[in-house]
Design a protein around this nucleic acid. Sequence first.
DNA 1: TGACTTAGATAGTGACACTCGCCAATATTG
DNA 2: CAATATTGGCGAGTGTCACTATCTAAGTCA
Lengths: 212, 212
Amino acid sequence: MRISQLAAATEIPVATIKYYLRENLLHDGVLTSATQARYDDSHVRRLKLIRALIGTAGLSVSATREVLLGLENPPESGHDLLGIAHHAVTRTAADDVDLSAAQKLLDRWGWGAAACDRDTQAALVEALHGLSEAGFEAPAALLDRYAAAMQDIAEADVESVPTDSAEAAMQHVVLGTLLMEPVLLAMRRLAQQSASVQRFGGAGSPRRPGPE
Amino acid sequence: MRISQLAAATEIPVATIKYYLRENLLHDGVLTSATQARYDDSHVRRLKLIRALIGTAGLSVSATREVLLGLENPPESGHDLLGIAHHAVTRTAADDVDLSAAQKLLDRWGWGAAACDRDTQAALVEALHGLSEAGFEAPAALLDRYAAAMQDIAEADVESVPTDSAEAAMQHVVLGTLLMEPVLLAMRRLAQQSASVQRFGGAGSPRRPGPE
DNA sequence: TGACTTAGATAGTGACACTCGCCAATATTG
DNA sequence: CAATATTGGCGAGTGTCACTATCTAAGTCA
């Protein structure tokens, strides 16, 4: 398969494929001469994965590179693999962030504070900070309810990891973590719309207050 | 309060405040002369809100403008207000998107397909498509479990909307929708880490496979 | 009076994800 | 074999975005 056929098969412009090659997101094809290389199915699959990570999951090119690298050189532990996925979507926290608020919540939810990544804890603290800065004080009961729901989801996540093949487990953990996020957010919005209709009545569609 | 004091109070550079003024995110101060204006507490609050929407929630400047506009000129129905918030985080779907997959899921989850916004449905379809393109086929049972959890969250969302003041309700719906998303995602990651330790054992921290 | 601040406008910056154009070397086609 | 098309590799350009810097005339304050 030549690059133009690869482009046709994936609907990605040749220039973009070349860019991904340069950025080491996509492995090189086999050079058959100085100006020709062969690509195969693995390139097609890889490109689809790249587009899903960059497009659907909204990762940056460099975060995508790290995730792909992690998939190729998997750590021994499934837990560390999860760390790679989480690291890709969580920006590094400053050293002086106060995590005590997060620790308190983790303790309350029984999520063994020690086991949890600093950066992810910082992300929670920052998100809650943004909320309160905007004048929204989330009642503890509401957060608890959210936490219970997310714990349920996380348990489903972890339970659904296949144990037979290590490679399948990796794919599953990383993709399930990163690509499922937009699914979950879309689900929440749809569920909100449904609940909102029942609560407020469906005066109009969410987008249009009525006939124009 | 002059602009430099406003900048000091919010820790936002003067140049950035001027930019927000130009972009109509922030209302003008009261001109006391051709080159002086007074700002007050409402500007401080507004700036904090803007930063939360752009920074925490990750909205674009133009989406932020639409949300703020919606907060100022509230629609009569709470449901329409939710639509404004959802519209801000959901890109407009093409006309020819096939929503039948979404309809089927909405029916199965009892979320009254008709009541749900087209664009949000399209976002779900697209997110699921990205997942399968990447080679991750989510079992229906897993999606059902996710849906149940998100429904629980959405019900908590809608129930927690205050009914006394219309203004408070607006703030609540919009901020609860937009600013809570990063909170929920951080919670999921932390819960995953906790569940992962219990499943795979905590061989190392998620970020570091071991002592270096 | 003179140093400092400001509104308002224009232009510039850096990051990001591509996208384009070029060239020499090949491959394909007639 | 010659004409045409394609390719790898590389440097440079594009458009978008959220700022950021600079300038000027007009003001404020000590």
